[in-house]
Design a protein around this nucleic acid. Structure first.
Lengths: 236, 236
DNA sequence: TTTTTTTGATAGTAATACTATTATTTTTGT
DNA sequence: ACAAAAATAATAGTATTACTATCAAAAAAA
């Protein structure tokens, strides 16, 4: 408990509005977009544009038009669209980390913790009012589709050094520790966790677009059951 | 047995050189690249270029330079680089399908079949001399990194209709049937298979680039053990 | 209210993702 | 071996992308 609270204290910053706010690293932007109106507009409308047309078609020019601004302004916040995506990616996982931390607070059983974590991972999220410029439901959609593209690139090592994946790695570690509580002799805790996380995104996507690759995984309860079943049986 | 041989007969085309050759669908090219010298050069050098610089940096112009030809020539074979990738993607899975078919031939036990399949999936492949213009080892590397990009796009449904994913879907079905032999009441055979397939790529990649997300999965035996363990325990 | 910072407007460049045209080379059918 | 057909190379051109640079205007901070 104390460990978790300390953890939260370190990773969250207390703001004027007397709510917690999720922070991402300085390597993920040139100028912090949360500190200005245009910055927040970039986040808000950029996310919606990404949802709309996907990463490949997404350009700063189109976003600039959408927010009635200019390319040069957006380039003052983000180096390029990949950094923008990495920003959202880290925001998402930092936020999920908090959700998961709350979901397992006061739970004794490690099995139950894992079940709750998987529920949080497979559930459709609720919009978080503390960040009005980020629609978390849309964010989840976008990250599910685009996140693998952040690391499946020739620039992985460089981007990894720049901290593009810290939040994700932290979360994997945290869940892996719970895996080890359940079965301390299991050899592949991190691998199991990252497999589950990736699968939660891709299976849902397959359910919607490539149904032959899956078994109705667009239905949340099925996806949840599928993943919990794999985890608990694997750890027995 | 007979079913498998018939299957092979249908999906493979007997060629002059008295060897089997893997064929991909007509929707995956404008002009069949295997029917000409430049076509084969495009495949061969295109694959190497992809390995070298990745899909994002890959352009037909660069490939044209590499093979001392022109953009317009390449465009006569493939609509764009995504179709080119889809061609390789289907070639890969068609070829793995054959490898897997041979690996399980004459094997009685379904458990053993599954073990052998996972071995084939996680092993570094050997170059297949029947297709001198495709270096299968490089192909595996490239597909591992780029394949998700074929389906994680706004054009999935359209590309799915065009048959961009048939080979992959076929293979998933085939392995899913073996899963059902092991446990006929398991509810998520296809999902388990596609999870394993994706994981076999990504875990190895994590092992090499993002080690904190996995547990030394760049070592083939570990990856194999990890995946077999998950499958067999899940199906118990 | 001056200074500093941020934004908008405009311009420009090299590269990408193509399409089109025509001359030349290669393949093929007889 | 030769004409006809097909394929390729060379060249040009367009709209868009992915930036960078400059400078004036607007907004925020001192």
């Amino acid at each position: 408990m104390i460990v978790i609270l300390l953890f939260l204290y370190v990773k969250l910053v207390y703001m004027q509005q007397s709510v917690f706010q999720i922070q991402v690293q300085e390597t993920l932007y040139i100028k912090d977009p949360t500190t200005s109106k245009v910055g927040k507009l970039i986040l808000e409308q950029g996310l919606l544009l990404l949802e709309d047309i996907g990463l490949e078609e997404f350009t700063f020019k189109k976003l600039a038009n959408k927010i009635a601004s200019t390319e040069s302004t957006i380039y003052r916040y983000f180096e390029n669209k990949h950094q923008f995506l990495a920003y959202l990616f880290n925001f998402y996982w930092a936020w999920m980390d908090v959700n998961i931390a709350f979901a397992v607070t006061n739970i004794e059983s490690s099995h139950e913790k894992l079940r709750r974590i998987i529920r949080v991972l497979t559930q459709k999220v609720n919009n978080d009012m503390r960040t009005p410029y980020i629609d978390e439901e849309v964010l989840q959609e976008v990250i599910a589709i685009e996140s693998s593209k952040t690391y499946l690139s020739k620039k992985v090592d460089q981007e990894n050094n720049a901290g593009y994946f810290v939040q994700y790695k932290k979360l994997v570690d945290r869940i892996a520790n719970i895996i080890l509580e359940i079965n301390p002799s299991y050899s592949y805790p991190n691998a199991l966790v990252s497999t589950i996380l990736e699968s939660s995104f891709h299976q849902r996507y397959f359910g919607m677009h490539l149904p032959r690759l899956t078994n109705e995984m667009h239905i949340q309860e099925r996806l949840e059951d599928f993943l919990i079943d794999i985890c608990l049986k694997t750890l027995k």
